[in-house]
Design a binder for these strands. Structure first.
Lengths: 130, 130
DNA sequence: TATAGTAGGTACCTAGAGGAAAGCGACTAT
DNA sequence: ATAGTCGCTTTCCTCTAGGTACCTACTATA
């Protein structure tokens, strides 16, 4: 798979999924998963409301859904304390933490190139006779 | 930005967007953009129908939409030849090609860890009293 | 008494993404 | 005369992610 600089020729062999990274993208980059993983990694172990407040705009329903999915995928570990009031803690797993260099790479690319994207958008919007 | 192992503390300062990579994710990892970029990079310059056939499951309407978006973001270069029948060619831009190591990193992580995700899902589904 | 906090679950609703299918304009090949 | 090619565009339809609002049981606090 990683036999060359990254872009393999596997796309030619699989017409259905022309991109060998699509499986990862669904797991890691579906909506809300990156902010959740990022927050859990920067702040360590967090309770539900803490996570909710740090992310700021997510609704509890969606947060629950995404946390369940991330737990099922082994990216997040959930610890339930049967107290009153109930206490639940979430932390990033070893598998989730292994994404750190990837996210670093992504943030690096963003810092270096996001303004180029902005520039390209501006050029497109002004030059193209919409 | 890249002052530590990758996960910066920027999340704490921005409650609205708790993840500094969210901007990139919308550009690079929104639906269909990864297969398109991947195919354009592996096959070089391609015509509309060629792209359509290589991806296989995308509809022309969606392909047009994504190509316009990628063109506006400066990731793809579109060349129109006013012939009959019309001929249009798409190729990946320099900016788009700069994503190659990132995609390589992603494919590498996938090759190393996708089976762990599968295992975690299986464990979750069998252990959890759904 | 009543309110707040905790970790969600549930029912309902809407907006938007995406799929299916047809068309179009200008020409060519059969 | 008919069908086909190319790169879309348009219309219609469906599906679902996500938002809003309200609910639980139990306790501590005012």
């Amino acid at each position: 798979m990683a036999d060359n600089a990254g872009w393999t020729a596997a796309a030619a062999t699989d017409p259905q999924l022309a991109c060998p990274t699509s499986g990862v993208v669904d797991i890691v980059f579906s909506r809300w998963t990156t902010p959740i993983l990022w927050t859990l990694n920067t702040h360590g172990r967090l309770r539900f409301v803490e996570l909710e407040r740090l992310i700021g705009t997510i609704t509890p329903k969606v947060l629950t859904q995404r946390l369940r999915q991330l737990e099922r995928d082994g990216m997040v570990v959930r610890t339930y304390h049967p107290e009153v009031p109930p206490r639940v803690e979430y932390e990033i797993s070893e598998l989730g933490r292994s994404l750190a260099p990837l996210f670093a790479h992504l943030a690096e690319w963003a810092a270096a190139n996001l303004d180029k994207v902005e520039q390209a958008r501006h050029d497109y919007d002004t030059d193209t006779p919409r």
